[in-house]
Amino acid sequence: MKPQTVTKANRAANFLGWFSIGLGSLEAVAPGALGRTLGLGQMRLLRLYGLRELGAGVSLLTQPNPVPWLWARVAGDALDIVTLVGALTPGNSRRRNAGVALASVLAITGLDLWTAVQLTRLRTESRHPNVQKVEG
């Protein structure tokens, strides 16, 4: 794998770590406001999603091997997608907001997948038990 790709993937992993902390903070601290904005009534679920995001974000930024945490984000994205698709019902007066949120989640899922694949490939190619983050 090209060093430039490794650097981009590591920068993406760092970005995703900070993104997770920001989103997780919002979900954990203000699930009611977020739920109302999206037309969701699942405040406890949103708070749990926030804790999941916070855990993934902190782990991405602090653990030497980001790969499992990137795949955890991909799995979390799948949960978010299912939740948001459920908010697209005609009876939800906020379904447009849910649609925008769904489009955003799909976009970030693309970055999560790309980063996870790149760093998984690096781990496989390097034949080391852990992928060490390369600062850059």
Rank of each mutant, 00 (worst) to 15 (best):
M1Y: 08
P3E: 09
Q4F: 03
Q4R: 12
Q4A: 15
V6S: 08
T7V: 13
K8Q: 11
A9K: 04
N10E: 10
R11L: 12
R11Q: 15
A12Q: 04
A12N: 06
A12T: 02
N14T: 15
G17S: 06
G17A: 06
G17I: 08
W18G: 14
W18V: 15
F19R: 10
F19W: 14
G22D: 08
L23R: 05
L23V: 15
G24T: 07
G24F: 05
S25N: 07
L26Q: 09
E27H: 06
A28Y: 05
V29H: 02
V29P: 00
P31D: 06
P31S: 08
P31N: 09
G32T: 14
A33Q: 10
A33D: 05
L34C: 04
G35K: 07
R36S: 14
T37I: 01
T37S: 09
L38Y: 00
L38I: 07
L38P: 00
L40R: 02
L40H: 01
Q42D: 15
M43D: 14
M43T: 15
L45Q: 12
L46K: 10
L46P: 09
R47A: 14
L48H: 09
L48I: 12
G50M: 02
G50R: 04
L51K: 12
L51F: 13
R52D: 05
G55T: 10
A56I: 13
A56G: 02
S59V: 01
L60T: 10
L60M: 06
L61M: 12
P64K: 08
N65Q: 08
N65G: 05
N65H: 06
V67G: 07
P68R: 01
W69V: 09
W69K: 03
W71L: 07
W71G: 08
A72P: 00
A72Y: 02
A72M: 03
A72F: 06
A75F: 09
G76W: 03
A78Q: 12
I81Y: 01
I81K: 03
V82P: 00
T83S: 10
L88V: 07
T89A: 10
T89Q: 12
T89P: 00
T89F: 01
P90T: 14
N92T: 08
N92L: 06
R95H: 11
R96E: 13
N97V: 00
A98I: 06
G99Q: 03
V100W: 09
A101M: 14
L102H: 09
A103F: 01
V105K: 03
I108D: 04
I108W: 02
T109N: 07
G110F: 03
L111S: 11
L111N: 04
L111F: 09
D112M: 05
D112F: 03
W114D: 06
W114L: 15
T115P: 07
A116I: 06
A116W: 05
A116K: 09
Q118M: 14
L119H: 12
L119M: 11
T120D: 06
T120S: 14
R121H: 09
R121G: 05
L122D: 11
S126P: 00
R127A: 15
R127K: 15
H128T: 14
H128L: 13
N130C: 04
N130Q: 12
V131T: 13
V131G: 08
K133H: 04
V134Q: 14
V134P: 01
E135G: 01
